[in-house]
Design a protein around this nucleic acid. Structure first.
Lengths: 230, 230
DNA sequence: CGGTCTGTTGAAAACGATCAATACGTGTGG
DNA sequence: CCACACGTATTGATCGTTTTCAACAGACCG
């Protein structure tokens, strides 16, 4: 009963919010109403405006929560990493699409199943509330990021975020699971500005590039100072 | 048991999320653990980093949820209007300050009182969850606003928001309860840019000004097209 | 080998920020 | 009642950043 997560070296259910503090019996029940789903990259788990009957808990890989407006502008609201939970909402259609950026495995729950089970498992209910609180807190960080930080600072913020959230990332080697376009759509910038920010950070000796999608962090303190949001 | 809200013409408890679908008995219980608090303008209901032991439900007036970073930059995360609930969080200190922009009355709850009561009143629990969902949804709108809209569009978005949320506002007369600085801190702009956006909207005949803090909306469709976020 | 996708770089333009000056409204005291 | 000061809003000129448009480079794939 301890599925090894291919994306990290720890047993998944022990390390993610949804399963937190559940005993073996409770975990069993939760797993029973879930379905392990596998997707290749660039596929949609959920589509904006379609019925929001399912919720997902990322097991491995990275996904993006995104919104495309009628004017064609796209904003990525969040990146999702292993352990992240998504789909909580009281609306009957998804407000945002969820797209896999890498190959992805995820636990899928039917909304009704999960809410019913939460009624009988108080700890699960607590977990769901904490997840809500956490998501809100992250989205308010995003508000500050977009309202106050300059282009280069935003890129630094993303790098520190990835460093924390991608299991096998470290200062010596950080692989970006998303394209420059995705980064731009997340940070409210253009691809060119993102690219220029990377170049500037390289020029300043804060990072160095192994390949376009893989960097080393040379001055972590500088990076974190630039990314500071409090 | 129907307090008249000085800021609007409806009985408050009938029209706000926290009290929704509660019967008279349940309302009584909720009111019993609440304290009606009155503040003059520019006072703090809650301070960033202080213990987050209280929650508030705005009865009348307008407030701002704001964050000041160590670098001195200020971001207003949200404006709060009558009926709005604030303070939900699983952190033990407030992540943001709450400041009254006008004279304000608010129901104050001790966190423990409210969570205990919610255990015995399922409807209240549902309401709290819906409030969470709503706040998250608004904060994601804010992410899109800051990530994708131009200065003038942001101002239009704020105007349509105020039109919806301020009870006595209408297209003929909309009074701004906040200063240009507050607007700028909310929209991630400077005072000057906000002011120029207003001037431009005036020049284009979309709005006209009664006084600096009071406008008429002449072309609501144009305004809403500019503010469109979906 | 050529095509496509992704990322980088350059030059020009647009946008918003900054700095500085001016107007306006309100309240106070002469 | 007027003069003045203070806080707030507007406007202008200039500067800096980001966007836009365009060219090019590298990786991957048929």
């Amino acid at each position: 009963m301890s599925l090894k997560n291919p994306y990290q070296n720890i047993s998944f259910e022990n390390d993610c919010f949804l399963f937190k503090n559940l005993n073996d019996n409770e975990r069993q029940k939760l797993l029973q109403i879930s379905r392990l789903k596998t997707l290749s990259k660039q596929q949609y788990l959920a589509m904006q405006d379609s019925p929001s009957d399912k919720l997902f808990n990322i097991a491995s890989g990275v996904a993006a929560v995104e919104k495309v407006s009628s004017s064609g502008r796209k904003q990525i609201m969040a990146f999702l990493f292993p352990g992240d939970f998504v789909g909580l909402s009281h609306f009957d259609t998804y407000e945002y699409s969820i797209r896999s950026l890498t190959d992805l495995t995820t636990y899928e729950f039917k909304r009704n199943d999960l809410t019913s089970l939460a009624e009988t498992l108080p700890t699960l209910k607590v977990n769901l509330n904490e997840i809500y609180s956490l998501i809100l807190s992250l989205s308010l960080e995003q508000v500050y990021l977009l309202g106050q930080l300059k282009a280069c600072e935003r890129v630094c913020f993303l790098i520190t975020q990835l460093l924390k959230r991608i299991p096998e990332a470290n200062a010596d080697k950080l692989d970006f699971p998303m394209t420059r376009t995705d980064i731009a759509d997340y940070l409210g910038l253009t691809v060119e500005t993102v690219s220029r920010s990377f170049s500037q950070l390289k020029r300043d000796g804060v990072i160095s590039t192994i390949s376009p999608n893989s960097i080393s962090i040379l001055q972590q303190e500088t990076l974190e100072a630039l990314a500071a949001i409090d």
